[in-house]
Design a protein around this nucleic acid. Structure first.
Length: 121
RNA sequence: GGGAGAGGGUUGGGGGCCGCGGGGACCCCCGAGGUCCCCGAGGAAGGUCCGGACUCCGCAGGGCAGGCCGCUCGGCGCAAGCCGAGAGGGGGCGACCCCUGGAAAGUGCCACAGAGAACAGACCGCCGAUCCGGCUCGGGGGUUAUCCCCCGGGCGUCAUGGAGGCAAGGGUGAAACGGUGGGGUAAGAGCCCACCGCCGGGGCCGUGAGGUUCCCGGGCACGGUAAACCCCGGCCGGAGCAAGGCCAAAUAGGGAGGCGCUUGAGGGUGGCCCGCCCGAUGCCUCCGGGUAGGCCGCGUAGAUGCAUGGCCCCCGAGAAACAGAAUCCGGCCUAGUACCCUCUCCCCUUU
RNA sequence: GGCGGCGUAGCCAAGCGGUUAAGGCGAGGGACUGCAAAUCCCUUAUUCCCCGGUUCGAAUCCGGGCGCCGCCU
């Protein structure tokens, strides 16, 4: 995402999910093609560290677009991410945490079905 | 063979797959689409410590204040700074390294300790020659008197007791008015002498910082601190690309208070003054309201929610450290991996 | 990106180059009380953010780092 208005719309209307390493903001949309925005603040680290995180997260997004179908996604890195040196490690943590947080929130129809089963049981 | 010093260089390479930013060409079902080609982080891009370009402040004028630089000469440069050759001081066996205007222009400050701290001082100590005291001898006098006074001599002894002399030694301190030896003296002291050191002048050498085995003078006084004020010399107007410019959008030119209309409020982004310029239903403060999108600046890397990456294999036993352009350029400083090249020094061994 | 400011005890903080580094809050101990509160007394800095330098001497002066905070679109 590159347009200011679109980005602000995601911040305004999106659903916020908290993880230990990242914060996610999701906004479902009509198109199937997902878009991403990575935010890494100054407190996370120096320029090199911040660039590494952005690249790793984008790489993970690029390789697993099927996970994010129909979403505009904002990923905000929290300070602990800056301590991880390996790009591959950052990528794995990002993907794993996205799935954990999404499943816990019951965002998909599949998950909603599961929760209904749990409630009835 | 081992250790060390100086200077310089590079900051992985090749391949495969999947990607990112910019530019160009072509294609199309015209969509922020596809294909191909080209370009795409650093030696520090960093800290923002100095300079400069550039932009605006009417001109960038004068003075004060302020900032930066500081051994000498030469070179480059507007400058900061760098390079070369030297000077003085300090460190190292050495190669070599580190420091650098002025303290006899003035002012300030040197705590504590110590006797004394800026043209200082006498605590312990040394001496006690001289004078006073004491003892004694001789002479004279007051006198009846082995008692007193005066003069002169002596004291190895009484005593260092005082007046006083001294600054060598001890001790204090970051720092105490030069060192060694001799003479000298009561004891001492540059008090005197010799040598060493120091200071001043001249000569000579050097463009200069300075040097001096030469000559003369001075017994010797002049402490430290300018990363304290300051003085000397050189440079600097102020801000900063969020500078600044263009287009578009937006709403009332609203309310309250204050100042002022040429004898001028206020302003022209300079810390102050002067000069200069602008200046009238104008300026300042507060309240209330609206808009904050794009382009240029901006680049043979170049964006603006901000690109240069990921995985795997090989290349020596091993691919890594520090680190990511944001207007550009020159320095300084800081961070740090692996390796290469040139020169040099010391030690050990062998010949 | 640029321009400023600040780091002193757990917290808030003062500090002409020379003391044992003020003071307040808090905390701990003691006194008082039948027990408390209030009050009184005592204790609480050893790298003054870190590393160098100047100086006889540095929290203070000068460099260089580090970490916070603010302003400018």
């Amino acid at each position: 995402m590159r347009r200011k208005k679109e980005i602000e719309r995601v911040f305004r209307e999106g659903k916020r999910l908290e993880g230990r390493w990242f914060r996610f903001i999701l906004l479902p949309k009509e198109e199937e093609i997902p878009r991403i925005l990575v935010v890494v603040g100054r407190k996370v680290g120096k320029a090199v560290v911040r660039n590494r995180i952005k690249r790793a997260v984008r790489e993970g997004f690029r390789k697993h677009k099927d996970l994010f179908g129909g979403l505009d996604l904002v990923v905000i890195a929290k300070p602990p991410v800056g301590t991880i040196e390996e790009p591959g490690e950052i990528e794995r943590i990002f993907l794993r945490e996205f799935e954990e947080v999404r499943d816990a929130s019951g965002n998909t129809a599949h998950q909603r079905g599961l929760r209904e089963e749990e409630e009835t049981a």
